[in-house]
Design a protein around this nucleic acid. Structure first.
Ligand code: FES
Ligand code: FES
Lengths: 144, 144
DNA sequence: TTTATTTCGGATAAATTTATCCTATTTATA
DNA sequence: TATAAATAGGATAAATTTATCCGAAATAAA
């Protein structure tokens, strides 16, 4: 469904959100340990999230990654997926036609569209703070 | 969402269904032309569908691929996806945890499960003859 | 039985995604 | 200002997916 990069990106963002809510800046090392991902690869994905203004990086000693506390509740899963995997999952044709087009639909268009839009709604209505709070309360998990 | 292989497999199966309903056997060459896919790669995918009893192959002169006419209405999209991409899309965790587990859920488990099950229902309730009939009537398209 | 046709299957190559490594740049503190 | 710590970013490698090639096996028809 999502690329590995996107999976790592989502989990990393949640972990950063959890820590930022406690005024704690985190490093790629901590992140990759907590979400069980390759460190250098994860660092690259973090850079993409920084460029897309999903997270903030602070360079130099005592630096790390963080998210403005008051921004955590406004960041949607959709932004993360878009930053890393692009918009193919929303707009692309399920059977790989060049474009998904109502007027030139592939055989599964009508049925696929429903699923795709449910996925989009889900991603656009899920914020980082919702996901972070379940991690904090031990209801959900970032690895294993 | 689906792999390229799976996209080709679905489109190929639909094209074969269309032709078999008219007692017409087709070759990988015709198939790949009609669904706009690489021929040799498509042939490999057809072999997988044959092994999984989705389609039938007839070797030698005047051979080709076909589907038993009375079987076309019983073949579900789910069987094709399963034969090529496996069951990851149904059972796998959206964030890549080793297994999707109610008792050890990832942060998006509850929300992702809904989308995943809608996708599964769609695939399990869509048969080849439904898709083939839209192609025959010119309502849907296999390429461009 | 020979020939032409066609799928099967293994080997290989190209492209993309995933992953690692190393150096440059930035920054807080001593 | 010097030093240590940390992200940025380019180069490269490994793994996976996508794609191609070619000979073997099967089959219908001449
Ligand atoms: S045309 Fe294929 S999903 Fe819309
Ligand atoms: S545990 Fe991640 S989707 Fe169920």
């Amino acid at each position: 469904m999502f690329s590995k990069a996107c999976e790592y990106g989502i989990k990393a963002a949640i972990f950063i959100a959890v820590n930022s809510s406690e005024n704690n800046r985190v490093s790629p090392k901590e992140i990759s340990e907590e979400i069980d991902s390759p460190q250098a690869f994860t660092a690259k994905i973090l850079q993409a999230l920084v460029k897309n203004n999903v997270i903030k990086s602070v360079r130099g000693a005592y630096g790390g990654f963080e998210i403005d506390k008051d921004k955590i509740a406004t960041i949607k899963l959709a932004q993360i997926v878009y930053a890393i995997d692009g918009d193919g999952i929303y707009n692309g044709c399920g059977l790989g036609l060049h474009t998904c087009n109502e007027n030139h639909p592939c055989p599964v268009h009508d049925k696929f569209k429903v699923v795709r839009e449910e996925l989009r709604d889900m991603l656009e209505n899920t914020t980082l703070d919702q996901l972070a709070s379940d991690i904090k309360s031990g209801v959900s998990f970032l690895k294993i």
